[in-house]
Structures are given as C-alpha cells and as structure tokens.
Design a protein around this nucleic acid. Sequence first.
DNA 1: CTGAAAGCGCTTACAG
DNA 2: CTGAAAGCGCTTACAG
Lengths: 327, 327
Amino acid sequence: MTAATVSRALSDHPEISAKTKDVVKEAALRLNYNPNRIASSLRSGKTHVIGVLIPTAENAFFGSVIHGITNLARKQGYSVLIHECDELHELEVKGIQTFIGARVDGIIVSMSRNTLNYDHFLEVKRRNIPLVFFDRVPEDLGMPTVVIDGYKGAFLATQHLIDQGYRRIAHISGPVFIRTFSDRLNGYLAALKANNIPVEKELIYTGNISIESGMEGTRHLLQLPQPPDAIFAAEDFTALGILKQLKNSRIQVPQQFGIFGFCNDMFSEHTTPSLSTMDQQTVVMGQEAFKLLYGIITSDSSVITNNRCVIEPIPIFRESSLKTSIS
Amino acid sequence: MTAATVSRALSDHPEISAKTKDVVKEAALRLNYNPNRIASSLRSGKTHVIGVLIPTAENAFFGSVIHGITNLARKQGYSVLIHECDELHELEVKGIQTFIGARVDGIIVSMSRNTLNYDHFLEVKRRNIPLVFFDRVPEDLGMPTVVIDGYKGAFLATQHLIDQGYRRIAHISGPVFIRTFSDRLNGYLAALKANNIPVEKELIYTGNISIESGMEGTRHLLQLPQPPDAIFAAEDFTALGILKQLKNSRIQVPQQFGIFGFCNDMFSEHTTPSLSTMDQQTVVMGQEAFKLLYGIITSDSSVITNNRCVIEPIPIFRESSLKTSIS
DNA sequence: CTGAAAGCGCTTACAG
DNA sequence: CTGAAAGCGCTTACAG
C-alpha cells in the first residue's frame, strides 16, 4: 500500500474501497498517526487556519468575539491564529504580514484606533486572501464587515429615557471622528427629533471613553444654567463615571436622574444601581464574522452579495433608567 | 542567483556577502516577497507557532493571560494558535491533536475542569513537544507549571480581616477537590491558627463559584447561632453574592461586616462598596508561561531546573474590608 | 480501485 | 562566497 492510498483512505476519497479504508484507519489509530498538516498545506494550498487581528485580548469585548469566532471555526475544521496590535498601526501591519507568511485561508480584523493607512489591507486583497472586518471597520474600502447598529441602539436608548419621563436628555459621546461614536450621536439626535425635542448643543459633551471623562462631563453638564436630568452615554465606562459623579453630588439615580450606557460591559450589571445599557451580542458578532469569512473562502465565485452584516443591539433595562417602576 | 542564495541572504547567513544581501533584500522589498512559512516549516522542522489551549476566551482571566502570552511570543517571533475546550475533556483532546497536527513548537495549557485523564498530555510529552501549564495544572505529572500562590493570598486576606478588627471570619470556598480552592481554604485555616483563632467548621461553606452560591452561603452563615462578621470568599463572584445578600439583609459593609474576595475581576472595583480582593497578575502569568515554554524550546538540554513558577498575589484593599479607615 | 511520479517552496549538507 | 541537489511529508493528476 502506498502513501497515496493511505492519504486517500484517510480523507474518505470516494474511489477507495471500504475495506481498505477500514484497514488504514485502524492502523492509523493503532500507531497514533497524526498527519503532518504542514506538508498537507504546502501541497494542497489550504492551511485551514484563519488569522484574527485585534487591538488586545485584554478586553472583554474582544475576548468574547474571539470566543464566537473560534467556536464556529473549530466546527468547520479551522484553527485560529491570534495577533494583537496594541492599538499600534505598525503592529497591525506586522500582524498582516505574519498572516500572509503563514498562508492563512482568511483574515478577520478589528482595526487599531490609529490606522489611517490601508495599504496592508489592500495587499491582502491583492493576494486574494478573504478578509472580513468587525466593529472597527474601514470606511469606503467596500470590504465585508460586521458591525452593530449603533444608530438604532442610541435611538432606542434615548427613546427609553424619554418614555421614562426624563425631560432634558444629554449625551456624553466618544471621539466622534470614529464612526462607532458618530453613529451613536446621530441615533441620539434622531430620537430627540422624532419626539420634537429641540437639540441643544450644550447638552452634548465629547468624552474619551473613560470613567474620568464620564465624571468630568457630568460635572460640566450639572453646572449648566439648565442642567439635564438624564444622560445617554456612548459606552459603559462613561456611564459608570456619570454614576460615580452623581453619587458624589448626592443626586438619586434613577429617581432624579437617568443613565443609559452602551456595550453591556461585565461590570454594568453589578453597580449600584445597576446600569441600563445596550448589549452588543459580542459572541454573535464573532460568529457572523466567521460565517461571512467562511462564505467567501468556500464560494467559487468571488462575488459576495451580502457583504455587510448588521447586528441588532439588545436593550438591557436595569435600575439606572427605570424611573417609573420605582416611583 | 539561486533560491539557496536568496534564502541565505534573507536569513542573514554569515557566509553571504554584504553586497548580495543588499541586492536580495532590496528586490524582496520591491517585489513584496513574503516567504512561505509553511514550506520553511516543513523543511526546517520549526513552525514558530505555539498552541494555547484554554477553557474559554469569554472570560477576562484567560483573555488577560492570552494578552501576556501573545505579546511576548510576538517579540520572539512566535505566532499563537488558540483553541477553546469549553470545559469539555473531549474538546481538550481534540485541541491537543490539532496542535500536534499543526506541528507547533510548544503548547501552553490551562485544563478543563472535567479533565481527569491525562493521556493526551502524555502523548505530547512522548512526542517531545514542550508543554507548560498555567493556573489549572495537573498534579503529579511533573510538568512545568505557572500558578498563583493561593495559599499565601488567602492567608494575607484573612490576616487583613483580622487586623481590621473583625472577630468571626467565615470562608465561602469553591469546589475543594480543585487544588486552586483547597489552597485558598488552607491559607485561610493557617491564618486563623497563626492568630490563635479556633477553626469552626460551621463557618466554612462550600460554594460553587457563583453569585448565587455567595448569596446562599451568606444566608446560611447569617442564621447560625453565632454568625460571622466577615467572610473571605474564594473568588470575586462569590464575594459579589455576599455583598448583594448583605445589602438585602441591611447589613452595613464594611462597618458591620467585612468582605474579601479573590481574583480582582473587572467588576470588583466598581461595586458599591468596592470589593477588596487579591490580584492574580494575569498578564504576568501569561508572560511567565511563555518564558518557561520558550526556555524549554530553546534549551539544548532537556533538563529544566526551575520548572515551577509561583506568582505572588497582590492584595487590593478596597472599601469592603476597610473598617478602621471609616470608623 | 490502486500505484508511480511529480511537485508544493523552502533549507541545508555538500561541493567547489 | 555561491551553486546543485536532495528532501521535508503530504496530495493529486495521470495511468492502468
């Protein structure tokens, strides 16, 4: 029996007899034979490895997305290479080069905050390596992406605060040059408009995604001539800062003041009061990213129609915004 | 110029002239040449890939350790393959087989809770693939491990509660058949002894690492004839449950009751009051695991002397245990 | 249904 | 200092 026959038997080649397959498989098991995937990859041109490039694994969001990706990947026989860029464009480029060197079958990326130059992604495209982005996606590159509907999430959050009877609703945003945060700002603005509430520019504070900026923004908003009685925060750390500052100022949440966050971070259900927020379905996001990539890898045609997946945000109503259920 | 010369020039082989190297490197850059690492691996027998096997990436602890591993690995030119076992022994075995098939240069493992059979690890050893464990390590396999000093952490936490003036200190443990939790239980017992405090069995409640079991344990302890006035919890979710139950029972923390947790989970600094806990230096743990593995990979001798790395726990004193600074 | 042969793209011992 | 040749362990088109 030759290596060719063994190879075919182990991969269930249709032209091999059942008897031969049995003999080969039994022997493989007995001898603890573990095929060399490196050799297989070199010959077949398929590595069954995908690369995942993220800012950092030290972050519940990305950890959760990785979980979604690897779980589905394993079921389809793919292994996952992880690279972190630590928000450095240079390391992002290096990660892509490593993936190309490893001849991965596809790449999933969430960009560094500091990436403005897309040459490395264009190089991936030039080499016809399937590429999917999630959450932090490049604009106008026409590449497949998975994102959360931040506009809708912000709209729903703001509408909820209005429905709960809050009258002046402020927004503490993140850096709005980032699409993620401008989307949420726009959703907030749209909800005000839909309720015929005039937009007041002084009620919009630009923060930087941190507890400190949440506190700072709150102090700023509270000393306005007409302070707000609720804040929609662009993400949960900001919301936590708002909560801390209101406690310092002895303002009751949610009775006197409402808070709504975004992200459903680990801690948000454990604060006192617990934080209302938008869940981003992070595991689903990872799964959808892999599905999109897998679809491209396995499609013979290079034309992918549905190349944009939008995840629904799920409102999580907790104590910080439920005025009516308390009063 | 032959492929051999190019290969040598690119890897800075000492026998190649500087001029040739320059020519080759310039051309490589100009043509966007990216060497095929698969072919290189097949020939050289080194993949420069390590495998990391964890229960799940959807957990801040493991995400943080991965961060520590990948950061150091990248600096040494290694890529990281991730596999999750979802606490299933079967998937753990599959992950090891995948790593062997991928011919990784080394493997880092934190075991599934349900792993009792070590055959897959012995197979790794038999194939002389360097293997390092962290946190959840097998007993008596004599393999290199990185663990936190849970005994010491528990001792320090208990001593701190005593020093703060708490008189009856209970312990809500995790499943004590797991070494991690028996170590912490023993550290608690040792601290009591060191202070001549008699051990009372009814003050030790066995929980299951959850908010619910923290609450349940607290209810149980509070209805004792002589209830405790402080609890050292084996980990932070349990500590959070304790806090929630004490709030329900209108018991003031830390004035009437002290709480000390373990792990320094994301949420623990954001509860009200914030939770005192033991930080596990998770990033350092990942770094040490990689260092240990790298040492084995690069050592010519297979004799590794220091094959056990013990990480110091760092006490984080927060509101839930600081009675004296308040009164 | 199975075998013989070529080849994936590198690296490296050997020769000069 | 550089080249020619072999070979890593598979897969696959071709032949029978």
